[in-house]
Design a protein around this nucleic acid. Structure first.
Length: 864
RNA sequence: GCGGGAGUGGCGGAAUGGUAGACGCUCCGGACUUAGGAUCCGGUGGGGAUUACCCCGUGAGGGUUCAAGUCCCUCCUCCCGCACCA
């Protein structure tokens, strides 16, 4: 009997599988398809445990579906443009392209070592012109449809990365990538009109209910941020024009005692000009821009600048003052609000500070609200008071009626507003896809001709220490001719946000065609993605953009479906405990002595064990996948990861835990190896498994119960941890049972056939998780063909039925006895059995039996 | 503040309203050994009786039910997301 030599086995089978092309998939209308996709990685250098988890989960699903007869598409690629490549260029003087491709090579080898079942023929690398040329084409088509436009706005600017950031890429006022505080800057850039799809993006979330995590749906919904209300016009006598405000509470209109504008609002600027307040306003603007972050955190009070002007209330004709206020956002609604201090907390605070009138117009039904008693705004709905002819109406009704009145007199209308902003896609970066636009002095903005695509990213550029993009300084890139008039013209030197690439890569996988982005027939066969798997961190950005792209491409005639990802699984993080020394801060586990002291620099301080956190270098709690593969093999790593916790929860890495997984595989290996040679030639005929001895029947029954359980857990629930537990449980049971067999028994053909069935099916069950080990043992057992191409084992429904069961006898709901009984036990028989138990008797004597509840095949409860 | 999720042994985690703690780890004991950090066997929620008996136990408190970790109400704690969005 040989030992479990995982490195030999894994290498052997990886080569055989690759040679045989067992994971290749091509469209086949005769077979049902299943597209399982894991979020492709950024080639950062080497894979981390988060990747291993993500791809292990996807691989198990892919393998199970393959065993279930699906034509499984399971691809992998590289999200290869991005800033880290430029940073590496700066730091190590290596070209971003060289760095990126070296990383891809390395990481690809790592993925191969883990035995993932990818169809590598379909590999997509987004920094290759083969890929990004089509992205340029899509952009031009969007431009021609009015979905892409150039626009000057206040943008989020990261001073360190020297680039613009989308709203989505600003986290807590900091750059999502480098953590530098973000500044506001006015800049021109390209935008995609995602807001045109806001309603559909919101509405279609309903199609994903029950298939995507609820959390993700809610996050998307909030991000889109639909509000229904009214746009209301206030006349400005000073300018002789109207100012529009947006409100969700037109029912509070009579309580409006002032109007507030964003300081950046162009009407604020014009008014200030007229009133001689221009310098005050521009100072105010500068301050607000700078303090924006602090304002949002509530660290700075609400502040305003009185514009020395009044607005006319559309219904009362009252003149109310006009302020530029630091809490009014330019980007939302109309950039101006009607302020109702009695019923909005922000307006309330502002009114208190500037001693503005507060007018109560909504009151709860129980008690009339009085201004003097207000300590904060009353923001609930209620009954209208002090509202002219609308007094007495409920809020909901009043919203309708007041809006209708405004519409009649032409001073307002119903209005829907979204929080979602258009997607700014320009980045002042080098390592990205060039934006295929040209600026011509006579023709203006002209898209590059489709035939001239791709606009190649020049690879001869040098990144210098300023970190700025070298593209504007490359004359051979910048200077070109106008596609329209042929005159000298300049290219756009910005590149696309890398989220552009990840917004359609899943389509390219289905059909990596050199001539077109994808063949329509391939995409309509494979798409949408049946199961998408990735981290929750992409709940908004990537998933929203990909949904948007899908809808745009549908409207451009490329696709015939609305949503790209039918089901979504967001896996939890891989976390590990941390160690903290008072002197050294975070330290490595190796730096902690057995008695819990820090041994770094002989420091000797007590070490605190921190709670588990996401693996990171700075916290010294990273576990390197390579090291684990070398120590235990890919199968063990995969097994531990799948077993340690359910997919959507965080997984705590445990050095002891992986030992346990390794132990389990060695047990399987030793067990199957013990019998392999004697069973290899045995012909597995299921028909000869009738009339088994009770002992063998018990084994067979347990096997079939396990198959069913694993099927449910692996194929329906995606709870791999419990499925694996069931396999472990079966192994424990099997070893106990085998111990009872004599050497005579083992010579019996029937026994041998049964054992062959047991081992063959056991290996099949485990094979999606540990394919290498199972393939090797499958071969040694004389399994037919390759296990990775075998079908999922079936189970016999009638075998699941036991003849006997353990009757739980409860008295008043408490378990008092357990009695073995036949499954067809009637209620009367159960009662008789229960009453005959001395343990039960003890609890019911001297009491009257009031009720008997019998649950067949389970329990009987005697109520006394 | 709003929204979502979670609180179960020493730990990770199991339980269509029906035996709480499957499975794994840890720890303890034993076997085999020159040795074992290998392997195998047994035990391992708490308390008490110590043979096979009882009591308590799923964040806290109520409720529904023959029966509650699971359903309902109130509260507490933790994690995550959003947050001056008018």
């Amino acid at each position: 009997m040989s030992e479990y030599d995982f490195s030999l086995i894994e290498k052997k089978w990886q080569e055989i599988w690759e040679k045989a092309g067992v994971y290749q998939s091509d469209p086949d209308p005769q077979k049902p398809k299943y597209y399982v996709l894991e979020m492709f990685p950024y080639p950062s250098g080497k894979i981390h445990m988060g990747h291993v988890r993500n791809y292990t989960l996807g691989d198990i699903i892919a393998r199970v579906k393959r065993m279930k007869g699906y034509n499984v598409l399971h691809p992998m690629g590289w999200d290869a443009f991005g800033l880290p490549a430029e940073n590496a260029a700066l730091k190590h003087g290596i070209h971003p392209a060289k760095w990126t491709f070296a990383n891809i090579d390395y990481m690809k080898a790592q993925l191969k070592k883990l035995g993932f079942s990818y169809d590598w023929r379909r590999e997509v690398t987004t920094c290759l012109p083969d890929y990004y040329r089509f992205e340029q084409k899509f952009f031009i088509e969007m431009y021609e449809k009015g979905l892409a436009y150039r626009h000057k706005t206040l943008v989020n600017w990261c001073p360190k990365d020297q680039t613009v950031l989308a709203n989505e890429q600003v986290e807590d006022g900091r750059c999502w990538r480098c953590g530098t505080e973000v500044e506001m800057k006015e800049m021109e850039g390209w935008f995609l009109r995602i807001t045109a799809y806001a309603e559909e993006l919101l509405e279609d979330l309903k199609k994903l209910e029950g298939k995507w995590p609820e959390k993700v749906l809610i996050m998307q919904k909030n991000w889109i941020g639909k509000s229904v209300g009214a746009e209301i016009k206030f006349y400005l006598p000073d300018l002789g024009e109207y100012l529009s405000v947006f409100t969700t509470r037109p029912d509070t209109l009579f309580g409006a005692t002032f109007v507030a504008l964003s300081p950046e609002h162009e009407i604020a600027k014009r008014l200030a000009e007229k009133k001689g307040l221009a310098s005050e306003l521009s100072q105010f603007i500068q301050r607000v821009r700078k303090e924006r972050r602090a304002i949002e955190e509530g660290l700075i009070e609400k502040e305003g600048l009185f514009l020395d002007a009044y607005a006319v209330h559309p219904l009362t004709q009252e003149k109310i003052p006009l302020f530029a206020a630091n809490f009014v956002l330019l980007e939302y609604g109309t950039g101006a609000i009607m302020s109702v201090p009695a019923h909005d907390q922000r307006d309330f605070e502002f009114a208190k500070k500037y001693h503005l009138p507060i007018k109560v117009v909504i009151t709860p039904p129980e008690k009339i609200l009085k201004v003097e008693e207000l300590e904060s705004a009353y923001t609930d709905q209620g009954i209208l008071i002090n509202s002219g002819e609308f007094t007495g109406l409920g809020s909901e009704e009043a919203k309708e009626k007041i809006t209708a009145r405004l519409e009649e007199i032409g001073l307002g209308q119903k209005k829907v507003t979204y929080r979602l902003r258009d997607w700014g896609v320009s980045r002042q970066r080098y390592w990205g896809c060039p934006i295929p636009m040209i600026y011509c002095e006579t023709c203006g903005i002209v898209p590059e001709k489709i035939d001239n695509l791709p606009v190649l990213l020049p690879l001869n550029a040098k990144i210098d220490q300023t970190g700025k993009s070298p593209l504007p300084d490359l004359p051979e890139f910048v200077f070109t001719t106008c596609p329209k008039c042929g005159a000298k013209a300049c290219r756009e030197t910005d590149t696309f946000d890398t989220f552009m690439e990840s917004s359609w890569y899943f389509l390219r996988f289905a059909s990596p065609d050199p001539e077109m982005p994808f063949r329509k027939e391939d995409v309509s066969y494979y798409l949408p993605v049946d199961q998408y798997i990735g981290g929750i961190e992409h709940a908004i950005l990537h998933l929203l953009y990909a949904r948007f792209f899908t809808k745009v491409l549908r409207d451009l005639g490329y696709l015939n479906f609305d949503e790209p990802f039918t089901r979504l699984l967001t896996q939890g993080m891989v976390i590990k405990e941390t160690y903290k020394c008072l002197v050294h801060g975070w330290i490595y586990p190796e730096e902690v002595s057995a008695d819990g002291l820090c041994v770094k620099d002989n420091c000797g301080q007590r070490v605190e064990i921190g709670k588990p956190e996401k693996m990171s270098k700075s916290k010294c709690n990273v576990v390197d996948p390579d090291a684990m593969i070398n120590k235990y093999g890919a199968d063990t790593v995969r097994l531990f990861i799948a077993f340690a916790s359910p997919p959507e929860k965080d997984l705590e890495w445990s050095d002891h835990g992986i030992e346990g997984a390794y132990r389990f595989l060695k047990r399987i290996w030793n067990l199957v190896e013990t019998y392999a040679s004697s069973l290899k030639e045995v012909d597995l005929k299921e028909e000869s498994l009738q009339d088994l001895s009770p002992h063998l029947l018990k084994i067979r029954r347990k096997l079939h119960q396990t198959i069913k359980k694993v099927h449910t857990d692996f194929d329906e629930r995606f709870h791999f941890n419990t499925g694996i537990a069931a396999i472990m449980e079966f192994l424990n049971f099997l070893q106990d049972s085998l111990r009872e067999l004599t050497s005579e028994d083992l010579k019996d053909l029937k026994t041998k056939i049964l054992l062959k069935e047991v081992f063959i099916k056991l290996l099949l069950l485990l094979s999606p998780v540990c394919p290498h080990l199972c393939e090797e043992l499958w071969e040694r057992l004389g399994g037919r063909g390759l296990i990775v191409q075998a079908n999922f084992p079936s189970w016999e429904e009638k075998l699941l039925e036991e003849e006997k069961f353990i009757l739980i006898v409860q008295v008043n709901g408490k378990v008092r006895d357990q009695i073995e009984a036949p499954v067809d036990l009637t209620k009367e028989q159960a009662l008789e059995l229960a009453l005959s138990s001395p343990k039960v008797k003890k609890f019911i004597e001297n009491r009257t039996l009031k009720n008997i509840v019998y649950v067949p095949k389970k329990l009987i409860n005697l109520v006394v």
